[in-house]
């Protein structure tokens, strides 16, 4: 056990590392926020922009969103709907697939996982066109559910992989114990194993949600009439070429991700998992 003892000093190094990392990640978001919310005279129009602007304004937002609030809200809602369908479906399918895979020998399951990831190597563009033809026939074209199904192709392999990791952290013996205590197969699957896999499930949910949230290729081909948020912003910011409106839009895209991450982060603590198993 090399890492058993950790000196107080090494704890500081950890904090310093975390601080640097957080700074690198948060700085772009901060700059985005001050451009969107700060007065243009202190941000984009200034030679030496202040790191902390003193004058704030909502004018950029008003300018960006005025005139077509309903389109924007529709796009926002469509993205939200799609992302939640994608994430929920990914959990539903991924959990069962991962459980099945975890029962196979390591050799076989790794081959299957590799095959799953192989499917993501096919460019979305190649399959988006034939999918759109089928969707037109099935009435799924331009619908959130149809788009979600297509995005599942990119999301599922990763979700299954993450979920397998989550299931591996659940001690096998708890499953046996539950069966001995009288739980049937499905009771064990949903009432014993699932709650213990929650940290992994939440991570998988978050990741698939985010992958859907800013997915572009399937969205632009399968849902062009009522577009999702990234598509709308792309059309709009290229058309208008205004950095101030573009940053307002970007902030609108970023905020839900931050909110969701914060809300779900308290579930992603796995330290209590092995506490029931001594020895």
């Amino acid at each position: 056990m090399v890492s058993e003892y950790r000196s107080p000093k090494s704890k500081y190094y950890t904090y310093i590392g975390i601080a640097i990392f957080s700074f690198l990640v948060l700085l772009p978001i901060y700059i985005l926020a001050i451009i969107a919310l700060g007065d243009p005279s202190q941000t984009v129009a200034a030679y030496y922009p202040a790191l902390i602007p003193s004058k704030f304004t909502l004018a950029n937002f008003i300018k960006a969103f005025s005139g077509y609030g309903s389109v924007l809200i529709a796009a926002f809602y469509k993205s939200l709907e799609t992302a939640f369908i994608v994430a929920s479906l990914a959990i539903l399918l991924g959990y069962h697939a991962a459980y099945g895979l975890s029962k196979l020998s390591f050799k076989v399951s790794s081959i299957l996982i590799a095959l799953l990831f192989f499917s993501t190597m096919i460019p979305s563009l190649t399959i988006a066109i034939p999918i759109s033809v089928s969707f037109l026939k099935l009435g799924l074209y331009d619908s959130a559910f149809g788009l979600a199904l297509a995005q599942e192709l990119i999301v599922l392999p990763l979700t299954v992989f993450l979920m397998m990791g989550a299931l591996q952290s659940v001690p096998k013996q708890l499953e046996s114990q539950a069966r001995v205590d009288g739980a049937g197969f499905f009771q064990t699957l949903y009432q014993v194993i699932f709650p213990l896999a929650i940290p992994g499930v939440i991570s998988a949910f978050l990741l698939s949600w985010m992958m859907s949230w800013d997915e572009f290729t399937f969205a632009v081909i399968l849902s062009p009439v009522h577009p999702t948020l990234p598509i709308l912003i792309y059309f709009d910011s290229t058309a208008r070429g205004d950095i101030l409106t573009a940053t307002s839009f970007s902030l609108l895209v970023t905020l839900p991700v931050i909110v969701l991450t914060i809300v779900l982060s308290k579930f992603i603590k796995g330290s209590y998992l092995t506490a029931g198993i001594t020895g």
Binding site: R179, V180, G184, Y272, I277, G279
Partner: peptide
Amino acid sequence: PPNKRNLAMVFQNYALYP
């Protein structure tokens, strides 16, 4: 299956639900 045998078992490391 185990749940139909009506036996009780205590595992070596107790396997309590964490």
